[in-house]
Design a protein around this nucleic acid. Structure first.
Lengths: 125, 125
DNA sequence: CAACTGTATGGCTACCCAGTAATACAATAA
DNA sequence: TTATTGTATTACTGGGTAGCCATACAGTTG
């Protein structure tokens, strides 16, 4: 399928842009990554991500609005889980492409390539 | 591959977030969509997108920095083309998912659902 | 050289949003 | 009831950037 024959309404553009914007913050990416396929309470996420409670709650609220996560309340706790697993595909795509570009461009970013291997820094810093 | 066993450095997170941030502006999405698989000069893009020349140039500069587009100078003109076609996959993914969510939520967005014209697979890919 | 065209850049304003601190709200426990 | 715990919300501040206007720069033409 090709995107080139699509009708582009400003509303559609804004929707797509908004979707990407949700993923354009490291804090939210960290939350999503921490969540993974499991379900965690806000407190758990706060502990795991070393972020403030207010901040975490706010980010979760945005992710909830966007439909990226879902919430389940149980007593005092609110448990969140990823509701839209397509975000993992998105991140995969970006990560792969990023690794390509970086390893091809500056060798300085070998640190990033080592992310999946676990090799400690060799030439950085 | 799964994202859940990756080591998350703040730098990596920022890189991924920055990537998404580039795609988080309707104007840039419009430029990319207008470009499609072809090559266009800045002036062409200005005309096609009804945006100001300064703005278009600035956005193109960001896209260039991000490695999303490539530039070729020929005389007075600067021709841009999409250099990272993975962005099309990203947009496809987002559009499909968005159409799902929206058609499921408000029926008002049926117009948008028609954009992709295809039934999205819930298991995706 | 000067004039003209296409593109890039700098200044500016307005707006959005991340982060923090304090507080409000909700649900359970004493 | 009050106290306590977990979560959400408010008000505020600072940084980033989209958009516009004006202008600088680059390449061509005369």
């Amino acid at each position: 399928m090709d995107t080139s024959d699509r009708v582009l309404t400003p509303e559609a553009l804004e929707l797509v842009a908004a979707r990407f914007r949700v993923l354009s913050e490291p804090s939210r990416l960290r939350i999503l990554h921490t969540l993974g396929r499991s379900e965690m309470s806000v407190g758990d996420l706060v502990t795991a991500t070393n972020a403030s409670q207010a901040n975490t709650s706010k980010h979760l609220g945005m992710l909830l609005d966007a439909g990226v996560v879902a919430r389940r309340k149980e007593g005092l706790n609110a448990f969140y889980r990823v509701a839209d697993e397509s975000i993992f595909e998105l991140c995969e795509l970006v990560c792969s492409r990023l690794a390509e570009q970086l390893s091809a461009r500056h060798g300085a970013v070998s640190r990033f390539a080592n992310l999946s291997a676990g090799e400690p820094t060799s030439g950085s810093k």
